[in-house]
């Protein structure tokens, strides 16, 4: 697997590259600004781009904008956006460019190296992974939305874990229930959110997307 890293702080750029290389992910390019990122993506056609939100020249959300642009140029291009703080708004903007092959994480999560690398592979494979902080923020506002209000607290919990990109088995482990019980919850969620019977993965993404678009 080949990755392109865009991060303006050399310290973190090197740290990320080291972690990826240690897990047999080839770092095709490591750049420090959005222009170089666009060029690297064009040239390298990587399996995933790992992009910092704040980059030059204005040090606001260039990285986010660059990630969305990259996905506009190459639809479905897997992008994992990293930041030192997370905003629900940014998660939503990112998901509007399509919910598959998207990740949005606090940089702190990189420290759980095993999980981070797993996330990189999941996003590169078309999965959706949101930071637990974003998910928690959304959970606390579920009451604003009627559709979300239909879910039981347990179902909201399961949906939150789905949004974090966890598998059924992982959700079962986390909630200390059987995989069968998780299956039941997920089916109930799909039904309550009026999601059609389709490829299971796609429905998971749709559920998360529905979840994100609630206001």
């Amino acid at each position: 697997m080949r990755a392109v890293i865009a991060e303006d702080l050399a310290l973190l750029r090197d740290g990320l590259a080291r972690i990826l290389r240690a897990h047999d992910i080839d770092v095709a390019a490591a750049v420090g600004d959005p222009v170089a990122l666009a060029a690297a993506l064009e040239e390298q056609q990587p399996d995933i781009a790992i992009v910092d939100v704040r980059m030059p020249p204005t040090f606001t959300n260039e990285g986010l904008v660059a990630a969305i642009e990259a996905r506009a140029r190459r639809p479905g291009m897997p992008v994992l956006v990293l930041s030192q703080y997370v905003e629900q708004l940014y998660a939503r903007e990112l998901m509007l460019s399509g919910a598959e092959g998207v990740g949005y994480l606090l940089k702190d999560r990189v420290a759980e190296v095993g999980m981070f690398v797993e996330t990189v592979r999941k996003v590169a494979g078309g999965g959706t992974v949101l930071d637990p902080d974003v998910v928690t923020g959304m959970l606390t506002h579920h009451d604003r939305n009627q559709v979300m209000a239909r879910l039981t607290p347990r179902e909201r919990e399961v949906l939150g874990l789905m949004a974090e990109g966890r598998s059924n088995a992982a959700i079962a482990g986390k909630l200390v229930v059987t995989a069968k019980a998780v299956d039941k919850h997920i089916n109930s969620i799909f039904m309550k959110l009026d999601l059609p019977l389709d490829a299971d993965d796609n429905r998971r993404v749709l559920a998360v997307l529905r979840y994100l678009q609630t206001d």
Partner: peptide, 18 residues
């Protein structure tokens, strides 16, 4: 400071694995 702490966390995470 924040970036350095993130980097420390990354290093320690990798160290734990190794």
């Amino acid at each position: 400071a924040q970036a350095r702490l993130v980097s420390v966390a990354m290093n320690l995470g990798l160290a734990e694995e190794l």
